[in-house]
Nucleic acid binder design. Structure first.
Lengths: 343, 343
DNA sequence: ATCTCCGGATGAAACATTTCAAAGAGCGAC
DNA sequence: GTCGCTCTTTGAAATGTTTCATCCGGAGAT
């Protein structure tokens, strides 16, 4: 069941069979057709392991995301996959679940596999895990975060400006007349994304000439639906209940929406709500959710493209300059934050 | 950067290094520690390609799902992954997007990779694509479908009884007093799952002694949110508007819910709604969705376990008997289908 | 002193490919 | 007839592991 069997059956050498597969134009038509016929008859499929052993690197790209349960990352994966496959690469999608340990384990698996390159949304903000990749000269592109330029060498990255995103969201709420806004976040600012969104929110408040106390923060432990629902209790416990809520992502926002609905608080009449990521389910919520859209598919696509480019450059021993792409978010205004009547 | 370098640096043979890695107990402590130190110092990571070339099969399990955008499959993946990793296997998750062509392509990629086994939710009901796996003696487990026993050899499978699921949903609606129910489905019954759910629905109607016209069907082209929303137009166009809607999956149901909301029809007061899969977003909808729960994570886990078992059996040249596990769904009753007042 | 055993280390074969220098076969030109 | 050229094909080396039969050195038994 190897190339040897094919060669034997077709009465040619293994080299010729290899040529038929990889450079068909170099082999005479009669031979080529005979070999192809045998391949088809035997159902021969070449062994990637042998191939990549010889080549030194596989034809697979690793993709490590923070949370496959979040449709945002599913979209990133979709974009990346499409591009990778167009370039003849397979994609291995893995889920670190925001855990640096899992992240380290997966990255080391990628190294074992000698993947061609890695797209990663880092769980470990220090970038320590990434040094493993650098050590083995595996190109990588950071997605949805900018590299902390640890040792001056840097890497490519694709991200969305989270400060502006946060600013847009809160500016919109202020514009709608809100003067007391809660920020439902998660993970206590470990994640740069969350930190930036908060910073943007504060900037919007300052820009409007409002006092900093306008924004108050409610923290959760995970960026998921149920913590969002739980956060509503704290929200309602605040003295001077906020009239608007800005959530660090849509999963949280959906949780908040559900819990508000459950206690009979009307959205947007009593409390306005803005999420982040603009996942499909946000628009599909019974009160369609205003949300900061991130071009997720596009990010995946761009990141994969950059990675492919870097890979190529490496092969041709060309110089590759790392690039940091920062995309702009946009606000998708929907029902959940429509203008509230003057108080 | 190979095992050879390690051997040289440590002043031992390559065989010994290999032993340190794979059977540490067989090598003397002093040697072992010396080698380990060198491995750490050099940052050596063994090459999976070489390893699997020798072994004949990789340590990766392929998982091919119909739609990564559907959280149901994400859960399946989660369950499978956890189990696989516990067994020392990596998982390569791929997305056929319900296309038989993509499916064929991915399966052939799996064969190229000499994957240890495959978990697959078939897009091609004929099972033709699966013959490739059989031909190459790659064990596979069918997830969320029962194998059409094409050539008598069969395969393991894990599925949920969709007939019972459909029956539960509709029986519940009938029980709540509904006498005119729409089934929003997709893909014109190509998918066995959908066909079964419809069959179950009809069975419930018959069991209640109601005429078959009680159920009417509205077909969409995809099992996704926006087709669900679009279906509402047809729904409202029906003469004698149904008082309840049963959707073939939750994505559709969320779309329906949103569209009903948009035209001001109250759920469940005017129209009751039941979905299928019980994805997290169903419970989180502003009107929490009644849904038929499928144990997705469990399915993934079971399937991966079966695959690992089959793999083991193959290695030990033991006999393996294929097993068909059929799980039971359960109905999660929520707000969207609460008892309607007598007409 | 010799024999036996045993833990530990070794070296080479095998795995399935790709690549590349070299060989071979025609063939036209001299 | 031989040289040079092109178009095909070939055979062998190289890739990084694992495995296994073999070998070695020393300890204990006779």
């Amino acid at each position: 069941m190897g190339i040897k069997d094919v060669a034997q059956q077709a009465g040619v050498s293994v080299g010729t069979v290899s040529n038929v597969i990889n450079r068909p134009e170099t082999v005479a038509r009669a031979t080529r057709e005979r070999v192809q016929e045998v391949i088809a008859r035997l159902g021969y499929v070449r062994s990637e392991s042998a191939r990549q052993l010889r080549a030194g690197a596989s034809r697979i790209m690793g993709l490590l995301v923070l949370d496959m349960g979040n449709p945002f990352f599913v979209d990133v994966a979709r974009g990346a996959e499409r591009t990778a496959r167009a370039a003849g690469l397979g994609v291995m999608v893995c889920n670190s679940d925001s855990s640096p340990d899992e992240e380290a384990e997966y990255l080391s698996m990628f190294v074992e596999q000698r993947v061609r390159g890695v797209l990663v949304t880092p769980a470990d903000a220090t970038g320590r895990d990434l040094s493993l990749l650098r050590r083995h000269q595996i190109p990588y592109v950071v997605v949805d975060a900018v590299v902390e330029d640890g040792d001056g060498r840097g890497a490519c990255s694709v991200s969305v400006d989270d400060v502006i995103g946060g600013e847009m969201a809160v500016a919109h709420l202020i514009d709608q007349g809100h003067r007391s806004i809660a920020f439902v976040s998660g993970l206590g600012h470990d994640r740069p994304q969350i930190r930036d969104r908060w910073a943007g929110a504060c900037r919007a408040v300052a820009a409007a000439g409002l006092p900093p106390e306008t924004m108050r923060e409610i923290s959760t432990d995970r960026l998921d639906v149920s913590p969002g629902a739980d956060a509503v209790a704290s929200l309602l416990g605040l003295r001077k209940r906020p009239t608007a809520v800005f959530c660090a992502n849509d999963m949280l926002a959906l949780g908040v929406l559900q819990a508000l609905f459950a206690v009979g608080i009307k959205v947007p009449e009593e409390i306005a709500l803005v999420g982040y990521d603009d996942i499909e389910f946000a628009a599909a919520a019974a009160v369609p959710l205003t949300s900061v859209r991130q071009p997720a598919v596009e990010m995946g696509r761009l990141a994969a493209e950059m990675l492919v480019r870097e890979t190529m450059a490496e092969e041709d021993a060309e110089e590759h300059v790392h690039e940091q792409i920062v995309l702009q978010p946009e606000l998708a205004v929907r029902e959940s934050s429509r203008r509230r009547l003057a108080p």
